[in-house]
Amino acid sequence: MSTLTLTPAPGAAPLPRMVLAQARMESRLLLRNGEQLLIAIVIPVIVLIGTVVGADHLHQLRTERPIDVFAPGVLGLAVMSTSFTSLAIATGFERRYGVLKWLGSSPLPRSGLLLGKVGSLLMVEVLQLVVLGGVAAAMGWHPSLDPVAVLGAVAMLVLGTAAFASLGLFVAGALRAEATLAVANLVYLLLLAGGGVVLPTRWYGGFGHVAWLLPSGALGEGLRSALDGGGFPALATLVLVAWTALGTFLTARTFSWE
């Protein structure tokens, strides 16, 4: 039997390897958690099917096909669930259980931890995109796939992730874990219903202008417009960049690791 050699041989792994390991670890934990899986995959699928099937009773659609209106919004909802709600809850409990504290003593630098978190969000979002895009395609969704549309949609997904992640980290870094859990779920539900992400903002009447300026509204409108062949969503880009700047500023000012 070989023995354990305890002689010191310290050293950090290369940064890319650490970041990848962290990203894989976090996405695995996220997908293992039942509640997180519920809001990452199950609820968006239900919302997609529910809205499309129930569209006849909405009396809001003009000439558009329901799937073309709701599929982009549901992708936006999926981004919101992962980068805001799941990230906030996971990070809140990482603070609670001393995970962030312990990692602070490991060779993984804070920047690497953040990159790992971004990586894990992207991994989960790719999975969501495949599942939800597949369901939508099976329901007859034909998004515009010209280069400007694809670029616009990718910009929306990335900037939406950045905006919601910065806000999610703000909540997780400032509140206790239980309060984070409550706030992250409540905000998710409020934005799902009234944030203009799944339902177009023009359906909200006067409030639609406000909803447009929310990160959820900008993300939903930007995705709908880009994937409907409406060109690059410049205004939505501006709104999401502004929210990212605000979220990053608030997080940097208030985040506590313990």
Partner: peptide, 21 residues
């Protein structure tokens, strides 16, 4: 503390090992 509540013991240790050279 120091570990995720849902992480398996061996998985956590392997993760920490992967942060070192």
């Amino acid at each position: 503390g120091g570990a995720w509540s849902g992480v398996r013991a061996a998985e956590m240790l392997a993760h920490v090992a992967s942060l070192h050279a």
